[in-house]
Write a protein that binds this DNA or RNA. Structure first.
Lengths: 152, 152
DNA sequence: TCCATTTCGTTGAAAGTTCAACAAATACTA
DNA sequence: TAGTATTTGTTGAACTTTCAACGAAATGGA
């Protein structure tokens, strides 16, 4: 990435603006519904949802941060808030003294149940109602390849 | 959007997780380079870039907010900062007393020139180096359709 | 073993964003 | 045209995220 790269041409720019438009606007669209329905933002929802799907409904903080696509610091602050609301609990990892394990509480499960139906409906209405199965698969495959690069 | 929607099946979920992964991680990847190279975040860069491409390098605040995919309030705060650094200037619109016009200054143009090469290189390395022309067109078309729904 | 390095998580402060309230100007309508 | 509603933009407070610094625990060589 050291040599001078050419600028984007018109066609590239058009595509890029659509992509970045989705990237910039989707989070606030999702946050809005979650805030109204369950007083959560998407990152908080993601934390609860990730824990629900995890074995024992428990994950290490750093793994949780990774699957939630956020920094460990961000997760740490959010975990403090969620713990304050008794939606998750944290305790020291018995096998690695550096690690902290986070687990979903009953309250967290309930809150997730409050948020989820509206969230799924919204995601359907914004994404899956617009794209058919094949298109969605294409989008997912392209996004997966980009994600590999971004995640470095 | 009122009836109970079915949950996402495995294939849908896999695609969705890739999409949301890009949505969540791309902004911080872009912010990092811009902060290092030119002490800007992506939203600020977008404001300067939008003005540069505008006629007279000038836009109404609310139009600017729209093309930058942000709220007017967010833009207003950012504009105050950018104006403080003399990267943009604001003045009342002569034809509509409610409106404010923002325009790029020489300093703003210079800052953009500092930021742009690295930014374009990064976007190329993350996006265009991974996808060929045809794939990028596909992605752009799919994203454009989603954007239409999200932008309501 | 000992020491340097890395990993893990938290913290407080700084920076940024959202939200609700507001004022000013324009547009609408009866 | 008077009164109401809408559009536009700003503001301050509350909230969230980032950044850099830190301590504790584990790892890896010499």
């Amino acid at each position: 990435m050291s040599e001078t790269a050419p600028w984007l041409d018109d066609e590239e720019m058009t595509s890029w603006l659509s992509v970045i438009g989705v990237v910039m606007r989707l989070p606030s669209a999702l946050d809005g519904q979650l805030r109204r329905d369950a007083d959560l933002n998407y990152f908080e929802y993601g934390v609860l949802a990730a824990l629900e799907h995890a074995e024992e409904q428990t994950m290490r903080m750093s793994d949780l941060a990774f699957v939630c696509n956020g920094s460990l610091s961000r997760l740490s602050h959010v975990a403090r808030r969620l713990e304050g609301e008794r939606l998750i609990a944290r305790y020291a990892c018995p096998t690695d003294g550096r690690s902290t394990l986070a687990t979903l509480t009953d309250g967290g499960r309930e809150r997730l149940a409050t948020a989820a139906p509206g969230h799924v409906r919204l995601v359907r209405s914004l994404i899956f109602d617009e794209l058919d199965r094949d298109e969605m698969r294409q989008l997912g495959d392209l996004a997966k390849r980009l994600l590999t690069r971004i995640q470095t």
